[in-house]
């Protein structure tokens, strides 16, 4: 009997430990909104989901590659990550000197980010989900029309090397989520769904033969320059690219 008890306690402690490693999440209540680019420029409905409060950190990603060596810099398949993957790390399992444990992980490809979230039983947010949470400021769920909101983001675009800052160093938004603006850009699961044009740098012609339905997708609010920049950068990305100012965070569906 005693043995069973002890074993249970051991397992419990173990479980609590692993549960602690999981990053904190909060619930985002769904609603309907009009994104910059949506289905036929129409409204998009978001169902309730949970989102990481902070972007994934260097420390968390370090644990991840230790557990899954296939994502270490020297082991990763070229098809899943380009040469910039974790380029500033000292070795497969050591961060670079200038990289803080609590700074957001960057220089990761979509495949690595996607697998990271899957291994935690989570997933990457969709573009629509990410934009939905990101349109809030400290007090309003949708602050896109406020001048101060747009100025803050554009001000960030001008600041250099914000990817070295620690997580939580920007404002807490309406949903109690930090760092959506002001730290790093973030991967989304369907970043490749943006059809501004074939590839923003390749063809400027929207009516090129590369897409069907491209004319159906257009910007709803061209004043929203900050968001436009985000969509443009997503359009230019490929899944194996790793950029030094591009990180990610995970979300989870709520089981009903």
């Amino acid at each position: 009997m005693k043995t069973v008890l002890r074993l249970t306690i051991c397992l419990l402690i173990f479980w609590v430990n692993t549960a602690n490693c999981q990053s904190k999440m909060v619930t985002v209540k769904g609603d309907t909104y009009i994104p910059l680019y949506g289905r036929d420029s129409m409204q998009v409905t978001i169902t309730d989901f949970q989102m990481d409060v902070y972007p994934v950190t260097n420390a968390q990603f370090l644990e991840f590659v230790k557990k899954y060596p296939k994502w270490q810099r020297s082991q990763v398949k070229k098809i899943f990550a380009d040469n910039n993957y974790l380029i500033n790390w000292k070795s497969d399992i050591a961060l670079g000197d200038s990289q803080a444990l609590n700074a957001p992980i960057t220089n990761v490809s979509w495949f690595a980010a996607n697998d990271y979230c899957e291994c935690q039983g989570k997933r990457l947010p969709t573009v629509d989900e990410w934009e939905y949470v990101a349109m809030s400021n400290e007090t309003l769920p949708d602050a896109r029309t406020l001048e101060s909101y747009n100025e803050y983001i554009l001000g960030w675009y001008e600041k250099p090397k914000t990817f070295n800052n620690e997580i939580g160093s920007t404002f807490k938004n309406y949903w109690n989520i930090y760092d959506l603006h002001g730290l790093v850009w973030e991967w989304t699961s369907d970043f490749n769904s943006v059809l501004i044009s074939g590839e923003s740098r390749n063809d400027v012609d929207k009516d090129s033969s590369l897409f069907c339905g491209s004319a159906a997708v257009g910007a709803t609010d061209l004043m929203n320059y900050a968001a436009f920049m985000r969509y443009a950068i997503r359009g230019s990305l490929k899944a194996k690219y790793s950029m030094k100012n591009l990180g990610f965070r995970c979300v989870q569906d709520i089981n009903k």
């Binding site: 289905r39 943006v194 897409f211 491209s214 359009g235």
Partner: peptide
Amino acid sequence: EFANVLAVKYKQISPMDFSHSN
């Protein structure tokens, strides 16, 4: 994931229709 390997972009624009790279 497969589309990402091929660099194919697509998005569901209505329940019946997708826009996608050819």
